[in-house]
Amino acid sequence: MFYDFRKIPVIDQAGIAERVARFTTRSIKKESKVQALKMALSMIDLTTLEGKDTENKVKQLCYKAMHPHVALPDLPSVAAICVYPTMVSAAKQALKGSTVKIASVSTAFPSGQSTKEVKVTDTNFALDNGADEIDMVMSRGEFLKGNYQFVFDEIASMKQLCKPYHARLKVILETGELSTLDDVRRASDIAIYAGADFIKTSTGKINIAATMPVTLVMLDAIKDYYYKTGIMIGMKPAGGISSAKVALNYLVMLHETLGNAWLNNEWFRFGASSLANDVILQLEKEAKGVYYTKNYISID
């Protein structure tokens, strides 16, 4: 399939803002709210990506991923935990027997400023240790230079590494470093055509993380690819989504843009660390009718 990445569909920034505003006016109440909160919880990639991470910290997070809240035992587990490659084997051990996936960041996360050899080694290390998903970073520098071929090839080569392991590849565009929605769209297209299974907004390591307009542009790219090929691509907004209310706005946007088929953790994820506890807080409120203090909800 030939696709010229210099030419992308026209995007109207003001129009995107209007479309986004419309999603935020939906009123999600009662059962539909509980359903959405559970859905949101099940879509979370519970994340810890810090220099001070240790195996024990990761193991604690894994327990939380499997048992989000002791007082509500029938809650779904989260979709995955997201860690550095060095923490994958500890996570693998801790998550044995559960449905929770292990996502590992890779390719010199978060900046991606390294050589191809280093990136290949990085990715292979994560895969060998049992990562189910690879969250790679796009080379923004090369992208902004207009070197789309480099960006495409790099993503395609990571995909090749993932294939034998049946691991899914997420490509982080780091949209906060791309200055326009046009570039967000262009980067989405490159990633999708190069073989990404998921496209992801951000590393969470810079100030500007996921926003609804950026996510909508990426959802449009996924929709266009689906119209053309019938193939579904997943979406992961990451960073900055810390309240259940905002997560519900994202779900409404997902629902009314791509429809039912994407409404599960196979095709949609939230990259977040503190979102889970706010969702649990809201679920407690829906179940018991009162708000609990945060001390009733475990932090891990």
């Binding site: 399939m1 999600i28 109440k29 059962e31 539909s32 689906y226 090929t229 193939i231 088929a261």
Partner: peptide, 21 residues
């Protein structure tokens, strides 16, 4: 890449919004 004929997108069957009157 094998081309599949895309299914039409479907809305509001899995997740219906409760009335908010």
């Amino acid at each position: 890449m094998t081309k599949k004929e895309p299914q039409p997108l479907e809305y509001f069957t899995e997740w219906k919004y409760n009335p908010a009157l």
